[in-house]
Amino acid sequence: MATEAQGEEAGGLVFHPMDQFIVEPFFGEGAVAWYTITNATFWMALAVLTTFALLVLGTSRRSIIPTRMQSVAELAYGFVYKMVEDICGKEGVKYFPYIMTLFMFIVTANFLGLIPTAFSPTSHFAVTVVLALAVFLTVTVLGFVKNGTAFLGLFWVASAPLALRPVLAIIELISYFVRPVSHSIRLAGNIMAGHAVIKVFAGFAAIAVISPASIVAITAMYGLEVLVAFIQAYVFTILACVYLKDALHPGH
């Protein structure tokens, strides 16, 4: 704190890229309790309401000549439906509502987080871990319900030599339980890194000498983050579909 104060007094450049990820009360100040409305809960609720407005209100008056909202809703619906059908097959289509909800929440939260002064909830592991664990537990329970003990065939590589099968089974088992870790870290890490880099370039924009270059860098990074916001939602969803396929068809 003393060093920070000295830097400010000396007129130096002081900025903290990670401050934008601090969870704090949305109204007023003070400690955060379980019932406190924070910036994280506000933007998550806004993502849910935005998704509802797009998919429900935007298609409530469907017409042959669609409005812009209806066009976006139909495009998103067709995109996710095709993904589920291609990866999981016809049997997986019945789980399309869950996959669609997952994709729309993540992609909407990612895009809302790009609004200046907004908060990106998908940059927090507390959010992405819950989403990843929900997928992990859902497909695991579904796998046993649909296949019984035959679901354990997912870990037994029957095509491998008999001597290697126990070793491969251990590797498959470990990789299976690592799924929610990699699933959550990939999303949160990419979103957090992109926002932090934009904040760093924004801090350098205050220096007149390098301000033009910094503004160009911010613009380029922002364009990249728009792409990343969609790609990371797509990757998270397509992995959920792959895990769902394993639950429905566990045999190697």
Score class of each variant (00 low, 15 high):
1 M>L: 09
3 T>I: 14
4 E>A: 11
4 E>H: 09
5 A>V: 15
5 A>D: 09
5 A>H: 05
6 Q>I: 06
6 Q>M: 07
8 E>S: 04
10 A>K: 05
12 G>Y: 12
12 G>D: 06
13 L>E: 08
14 V>K: 05
15 F>D: 00
16 H>W: 10
17 P>W: 04
22 I>P: 12
24 E>G: 11
26 F>P: 13
28 G>P: 13
30 G>Q: 01
30 G>A: 03
31 A>W: 01
31 A>Y: 04
32 V>M: 07
35 Y>T: 13
38 T>R: 00
40 A>P: 09
40 A>S: 13
42 F>V: 15
45 A>R: 04
45 A>Q: 04
45 A>H: 06
46 L>P: 00
50 T>N: 01
50 T>W: 02
51 T>K: 03
53 A>F: 13
55 L>T: 08
56 V>C: 09
57 L>A: 12
58 G>N: 05
60 S>V: 08
60 S>M: 08
60 S>I: 12
61 R>G: 06
63 S>Q: 09
63 S>T: 11
64 I>A: 15
66 P>C: 06
67 T>E: 09
68 R>M: 10
70 Q>F: 06
70 Q>E: 14
72 V>I: 15
75 L>W: 14
75 L>N: 10
77 Y>N: 14
78 G>H: 07
80 V>C: 08
87 I>W: 02
87 I>G: 00
88 C>L: 02
88 C>H: 00
90 K>W: 06
91 E>K: 15
94 K>F: 01
96 F>D: 02
97 P>K: 00
99 I>H: 03
100 M>T: 00
100 M>G: 02
102 L>N: 10
106 I>S: 02
107 V>S: 12
116 P>S: 04
117 T>A: 07
117 T>M: 03
127 V>F: 05
131 L>Q: 02
132 A>C: 04
134 A>W: 02
138 T>F: 15
138 T>A: 06
141 V>G: 01
142 L>P: 15
144 F>N: 09
148 G>S: 05
148 G>P: 15
150 A>E: 10
152 L>G: 13
154 L>A: 13
155 F>M: 07
156 W>D: 07
157 V>F: 13
159 S>V: 10
165 R>V: 07
165 R>I: 02
166 P>K: 02
167 V>M: 12
167 V>R: 00
168 L>E: 07
169 A>K: 00
170 I>A: 10
170 I>Y: 03
171 I>L: 10
173 L>W: 10
174 I>C: 08
175 S>P: 02
175 S>M: 12
177 F>A: 04
181 V>C: 11
181 V>Y: 14
183 H>W: 13
184 S>P: 12
186 R>V: 02
188 A>D: 03
188 A>F: 11
191 I>H: 03
194 G>D: 09
201 F>V: 04
203 G>W: 01
204 F>P: 11
206 A>T: 04
206 A>D: 06
208 A>R: 08
209 V>D: 07
210 I>R: 00
211 S>R: 07
212 P>T: 00
216 V>C: 08
217 A>I: 04
219 T>R: 10
220 A>E: 04
221 M>A: 14
224 L>C: 10
227 L>R: 05
229 A>C: 09
230 F>L: 14
234 Y>E: 08
234 Y>D: 13
234 Y>S: 08
235 V>M: 13
237 T>E: 09
238 I>E: 10
240 A>Y: 01
241 C>S: 07
245 K>I: 06
246 D>H: 14
247 A>C: 03
247 A>K: 01
251 G>P: 00
251 G>L: 06
251 G>M: 11
251 G>Q: 12
251 G>T: 12
252 H>E: 03
